[in-house]
């Protein structure tokens, strides 16, 4: 193979970061994310068992549904008995609860936070709005289907779902994690270009790197 071809292939492997101004591109990473396979069988089973019992959710209320997380934290429903704890930073969180409708301004932040979370990461989509737009299906400013922008593991239907429904959703997520079915992180990387295409189609002023490391 000629040297020119290798250079071109290398260029394709890198992210373009076209949204950033020329002089800032050097400040951000342009490495594509890569898939990370599971550990060996029994160790992975054990770690999955632990992951299901230590869910740290990102305390980022992305819509009205985040209101349902407050009763869940306090004494009435007390999510800490399931090992669920809120973390204020995406670096440490492993579950992202999308609370209801996501406007375009929010989906930009959602994508950013989701990419900054360390895998394996799980997404819990709350409310009808994340499934098909709910009562905002004809709105100019909210998305209709969340799974076109980030991979979703569990949906909770309703408008609004009660905290009991949320707990049921968390239990469903636990079962899925324990069975090793939640692989949203690798799914996102494998279909990276498709997700990016969808995201860039609605986020018109893309002024961040293509992947927020």
């Amino acid at each position: 193979m000629e040297k020119k071809d290798i250079n071109e292939i290398e260029k394709k492997m890198k992210l373009a970061n076209e949204g950033l101004p020329e002089k800032e591109r050097i400040l951000f990473s342009d490495v594509r994310p890569s898939t990370v396979g599971p550990l060996n069988k029994h160790l992975e089973q054990f770690v999955n068992w632990v992951r299901a019992r230590s869910l740290w959710l990102l305390a980022f209320g992305t819509g009205c549904g985040a209101m349902e997380l407050r009763p869940l934290m306090t004494s009435r429903f007390d999510m800490s008995r399931f090992g669920i704890a809120p973390r204020p930073t995406p670096r440490q969180a492993s579950v992202f609860v999308i609370g209801g409708y996501a406007s375009i301004k929010t989906i930009k932040r959602i994508v950013r936070s989701y990419e900054q979370m360390q895998g394996p990461k799980f997404v819990l989509a709350l409310g009808s709005c994340t499934i098909n737009g709910g009562m905002y299906y004809d709105s100019y400013n909210t998305i209709n289907r969340l799974d076109y922008y980030i991979p979703v593991d569990v949906y909770i239907a309703g408008c609004m779902p009660r905290p009991e429904a949320l707990i049921a959703g968390f239990n469903r997520l636990k079962e899925k994690i324990q069975a090793g079915e939640c692989d949203g992180m690798n799914k996102y990387v494998e279909n990276f270009d498709w997700y990016k295409k969808n995201q860039k189609q609605i986020i018109k002023d893309w002024n961040m790197p293509d992947y927020n490391w």
Binding site: V36, V47, V50, Q118, G119
Partner: peptide
């Protein structure tokens, strides 16, 4: 254990 078991750091 969960934090040690994270796939990416």
């Amino acid at each position: 254990i969960k934090n040690h078991g994270k796939r990416v750091g």
